Simulated scan of single mutants.
Amino acid sequence: MANSRPSTIKEDALDSLRLCQRDSENVIETLTSVTLDFIDYNVDPSRIKQMESAMLTQALVSSRVERYIEALEMVKNDILQEQEQFNPASRFNEYLRDVESLSEEDMKSHPIYLKYMGQLQTMREEVGVYSAKDGNNEGFTILTNQRAFICPITQVTIKQPVKNRKCGHNYEESAVREMIRFKHRDNKRVRCPHVGCEHEDMHDSDLEPDRVLQHLIEQSEQKK
């Protein structure tokens, strides 16, 4: 390692951090899926609290990794831009001077945690509504309104649901992205295909995976 060029060392470090970032995203996905299962099957609330605490910890890890990546990228850019020599390690530490002060309490306002808690709230509402309809206290059974699972584009059950951040409607991911690409190719605006929706300017960036709907669809399929 001592003979490696600094640029190579930095690239190796960045590659390792990006790999760590992907691993963190997988952990977040797993924590979310497990917690949704816990809510679905009416597991002891203390277990759900443990999962929420674990998500705070993971959000902190993810936040720090993001900061490390940003700091390395900035040092890399400084090396290319600045004429005068400087100590890369000192500059790196300077960019990270406040990162150790981050705490799990700070993570309660982090987008990762806020999104996670939003998904849990949505799941609680869905389970509460549909369990009441089914007269079942063991958690969600089968949605009485199967239209919630039907893509307005394909008219079949959604397999990979995405939600429109702007209007809240759901679609089959491949179908809606193809629709957006097709319309934008002809320089046309894209209207949400849900009947009655007034959102008239859809973009790929408006879409995000809907873990709650994915979970409900999977559970419904298992219970058929």
Rank of each mutant, 00 (worst) to 15 (best):
M1A: 03
T8Q: 14
E11M: 05
D15S: 08
L17T: 01
L19I: 10
R22E: 11
V27S: 08
I28K: 09
S33A: 04
F38G: 00
D40E: 02
Y41T: 02
D44A: 02
R47V: 04
I48H: 14
K49H: 12
E52L: 02
S53H: 05
M55S: 07
T57E: 08
Q58P: 08
Q58A: 11
Q58W: 01
V61A: 06
S63C: 11
V65G: 05
Y68W: 10
L72N: 12
I79F: 14
L80A: 13
Q81W: 06
E82P: 10
E82N: 12
Q83W: 13
E84D: 14
Q85R: 15
Q85N: 15
S90V: 09
R91F: 11
R91G: 12
N93R: 12
E94R: 12
L96R: 00
L96C: 05
V99I: 15
S101C: 07
S101H: 09
E105H: 03
E105C: 04
D106S: 04
D106I: 02
K108H: 05
S109P: 03
S109G: 03
G118D: 07
G118F: 08
Q119T: 01
L120C: 11
R124D: 14
V127Y: 03
G128R: 06
Y130P: 06
A132Y: 14
A132N: 12
G135W: 09
N136T: 02
N137E: 04
N137H: 04
F140V: 07
T141R: 10
T141P: 15
T141D: 15
L143I: 07
R147D: 07
R147W: 12
F149K: 05
I150S: 13
P152G: 04
I153S: 09
Q155W: 08
V156Q: 15
T157S: 15
T157A: 14
K159A: 06
Q160K: 09
P161A: 02
N164W: 03
N164I: 06
C167Q: 08
C167W: 11
H169Q: 10
E172C: 11
A175Q: 07
A175M: 03
R177G: 01
F182H: 10
R185Y: 05
R185N: 04
R185S: 06
D186I: 03
N187F: 00
N187S: 01
N187E: 02
V190F: 01
V190D: 02
R191M: 09
R191V: 10
P193L: 00
H194K: 06
H194S: 05
V195T: 10
G196S: 01
G196F: 00
E198G: 01
H199Q: 01
E200H: 01
S205W: 07
E208Q: 05
D210G: 11
R211I: 00
R211Y: 00
L213F: 08
S220W: 05
S220N: 13
K223C: 07
K224N: 07
K224H: 03
